[in-house]
Amino acid sequence: MIKDITIGQFFPGDSVIHRMDPRMKLILTIVYIVIIFLCKNFWALGFMLLSLVIMCALSGVPAKVILKSIKPIAIIITFTAILNIFYVRTGEPLLDWHFIHITTGGVFTAIFMIIRICALVVASSLLTYTTSPTQITDGIERLFSPLKFMRGGVHTLAMMMTIALRFIPTLIDEFEKITNAQKARGADLETGNLVERAKALIPVLVPLFITSFRRAYELAFAMECRCYHGAEGRTRMKIMKYSKLDVFGFLFILIATGGVIALNMFFRHVV
C-alpha cells in the first residue's frame, strides 16, 4: 500500500527535458495546464495532446511508466465522465429512458474531460519524472525569491520541502523494516477487521515515530554542526542557468499556445 506513493518519483535520465532548467519546467508546466483548460474543441485538444506526446517522447521516460501515473486517478476520471454523460443536456438526444437522458453533448463533454484530466496529470508527472525533488524545490525557491520579505522566508519553506521529500523514501524503508521485524515476532497485520488491523499497526507506528524524532534531532544537530543558519549569505553549489534548451522549450509551448488559440477560433466549440 505504501509503495503506491508516487509523489516526487524521479526517473533519472539525460534527455533534453531532463537538462532543462527546473524553473522553466515549472513555469511551462503551469502554462501548459492553463492552455489545456483554454481548449474549446477537439482540434485544439488534439493539438495539445500531440505536443504532450512529443514532449514525452523527448523525455525518454518509457510510455509504460508515464501511463502508470494515470492509474491512481482512474476513479476520479470515471466519476467525472459519468457525471458529464448524465447531466449535460446539450446536442442531439441519444437515449431517453425514464429518468436517464443521454445526449451527444454529454458524451462529447465526457470524452473531452477524460482527455483533459489525463493530459493534465501526465504533464505534471512529466515534470516530476524528469526533475529530481531537490531540483524542483530549488526551482520553487528561486521562483518565489521575490517574496523574501515574508516571515520565515522562502528559503526555510523550500528547505522544509526538500527535507520532507528527501525523507519519504527513508521512512518507507524504515516502515518496511519495522513491519518485517514485528512480523518476525508473529505480528499479524493482514487479517482481521478494521479495528483489529488499526490496533495491529501500533507495534509498527510507535517505533516509526520514535525513529523519525531521532532522525530529526540528528539531522538538526548535523546541520548546526555545519553552521547552517538559514538563507543569509548562502551560496549555491549548482547555479541555475537558462540555456538554449529553455528557449526552445519556451518557443515550443508558445507555438502550442498559438496553435490552440487559432484552432479555437477556426473550429466550432464543443465545451
Binding site: 523494516k177 519495522i178 518485517n180 521485524a181 514485528q182 518476525a184 515476532r185 507495534p203 517505533p207 520514535i210 525513529t211
Partner: peptide
C-alpha cells in the same frame, strides 16, 4: 532478529 533490533 533484525539488525539494530532495539528500534523495534
Amino acid at each position: 532478529c533484525f539488525q539494530y533490533p532495539e528500534y523495534q
